[in-house]
Amino acid sequence: MAAEMQAGSRCMNFYGDGIAYLRDLPVRGRFIVIEGPDGSGRSTQVEALTSRLESDGHAVLNTGLKRSELVAKGILRAKQSTPLGNKTMTLMYAADLADQIEHKIIPALEAGTIVVADRYIFTLMARSAVRGLGRKWLSSLFGFALVPDMVFYLDVTPSELFYRAFQKYSALDYYESGADMGVSGDLYESFIIYQKRIATQFRQMEKSYSMIRIDGNKTIEEVGAELQEKVGTFLGAL
């Protein structure tokens, strides 16, 4: 096997069972995930990291949730009509990710591209866990997922998130404020409770999934500098 592999290439690493038929495919690129709730500055940081990597001469591919050719439109349509059950929603998002992993992420990694994902399985696991789905079931379901080289989590206090979300949209997202869960009729309270629960889920996953937590309460520039330095050190050490 080693003889056939090009310099710098290695076998892919999956969290568990799932895409068994792709296990021995050699890849050369790197896979970086940025997680964090809406208003954590996640998308801004993905953009900044992408242009930094490109200016350093790397090919970069951006992915995220609901971006598969197969499922994305279906999720949007489903959300507009009858509310779906929690298991159904989780499985639909899982199909969306699996499609992207097989058709976008893996081919990019084979070609030596750096893949930067704006959210990944961790958001889905956290959202589903706070809605009552079992941790064990979730982690085996997402066993098909590729293990990233780095996972960042932008940690922002719920009250700061509320402020940022309101400043940007003048409204709160239905699901991101946990309105579907009926935890409180008071939307502010509901938002805070929901985001706290999500944050707790992320803390619980931090160790087992080797997440790098970054204090997202800091300014865009400060967060960007910290994140890019860590990525730079990782890539430089290869």
């Binding site: 895409i19 499922v71 279906g74 489903a78 009509s81 779906l84 499985l91 699996a98």
Partner: peptide, 29 residues
Amino acid sequence: AVREITSGGKKKELLTPTTFSLLHATDFA
């Protein structure tokens, strides 16, 4: 809710064993 996604994927022959499985699981769920 799911049929459109699955039939679209079938028409375009986009499905892999994993996505085939997950979409049928979504339908079942």
